[in-house]
């Protein structure tokens, strides 16, 4: 079949992006999948096709525990960032009338992002520590007599850091969809006698779903792929999948790291596939 000019131009237009994606997305993933079947000695890896890496992964109780911990972190962080992110976005979109103030407040939300991720995380450590500001303040107020041990190096501190780091990823897309809601819909709801709560539940929430879903995807993938936050905030006492992978890499066990990465990738893809069943993002973009 002869290609028409239109088709050729169409292919050419798509080519640059296709090549970029092939080189920087598809090729590395294919490579990781291939290496996950290789073997490793103490200081080298050799090409092979063996299932040892997966066999060890699936037969170890640690794997299930660690994947469980990863999902737990993702779920709790998601719930908290959603609650906070939705509230903040709602306030900015519907309570603040002037657009200038909206933009100013939005910029205020991004201020923490002017410093590095690691700094924002580590700055919690002196705050939450045994002799840290939080404990000293609580003791001086007479709320507690003994420093609270669980403030730092615990699940609490890990999730606190996650929420702090990733709430903005929830705020931005939700705020964006909320701004696009036609204000006359809210007026109509009120005219028909809906209370504030009813408007929120039956008008705003359904219309904000795509934003919530995009924010959810951001937060869930970021938390599931993280390893450094868990390491610092738990004082190396807790593990998630990212830490399993980074430990393997540190010990030059690349094939086993690759196998874990493949399993993690599949898990994240499944989670996202389930999420997308609920909302059609494309319709709303």
């Amino acid at each position: 079949m002869r290609l028409t000019n239109r088709q050729v131009i169409g292919w050419l237009e798509a080519a640059p992006l296709t090549l970029v994606l092939l080189a920087f997305l598809i090729a590395p993933i294919v490579m990781i999948v291939i290496v996950s079947f290789w073997g490793a000695t103490e200081f080298s890896i050799y090409p092979a096709f063996q299932l040892d890496n997966y066999e060890f992964l699936f037969s170890s109780p640690v794997t299930y525990k660690v994947f469980g911990a990863t999902l737990k972190y993702a779920f709790i962080t998601w719930a908290l960032t959603l609650a906070i992110g939705f509230t903040v976005a709602y306030f900015m979109a519907f309570h603040v009338r002037s657009q200038t103030v909206q933009i100013a407040l939005f910029l205020v939300c991004t201020i923490p992002f002017w410093t590095s991720n690691i700094i924002r995380m580590i700055s919690w450590i002196p705050f939450l520590g045994r002799n840290g500001i939080a404990n000293q303040t609580l003791i001086s107020w007479g709320v507690i007599d003994q420093p609270l041990e669980w403030l730092l190096y615990s699940d609490f501190s890990v999730i606190l850091a996650f929420v702090h780091l990733y709430t903005l990823f929830m705020v931005v897309p939700i705020f964006n969809t909320m701004m696009r809601i036609d204000k006359s819909l809210l007026e109509a709801a009120r005219d028909n006698g809906a209370s504030g709560l009813q408007t929120l539940l039956h008008v705003i929430l359904p219309l904000t779903k795509p934003g919530i879903m995009i924010g959810t995807i951001f937060v869930v993938t970021l938390v599931m792929g993280d390893f450094i936050t868990v390491r610092f905030m738990s004082g190396s006492q807790r593990a998630n999948v990212g830490r399993l992978i980074s430990n393997d890499i540190g010990l030059l066990q690349y094939p086993s790291a690759a196998a874990t990465a493949v399993v993690l990738l599949c898990t994240v893809l499944i989670v996202i596939a389930i999420l997308l069943r609920f909302v059609n993002i494309r319709k709303e973009l």
């Binding site: 103490e42 170890s60 640690v62 525990k65 660690v66 190396s236 807790r238 830490r243 399993l244 430990n247």
Partner: peptide, 13 residues
């Protein structure tokens, strides 16, 4: 290698 695996379990436990 056995020790390293056990160590990973210790950290994750």
């Amino acid at each position: 290698q056995y020790m390293v695996r056990k160590w990973n379990e210790f950290i994750a436990s």
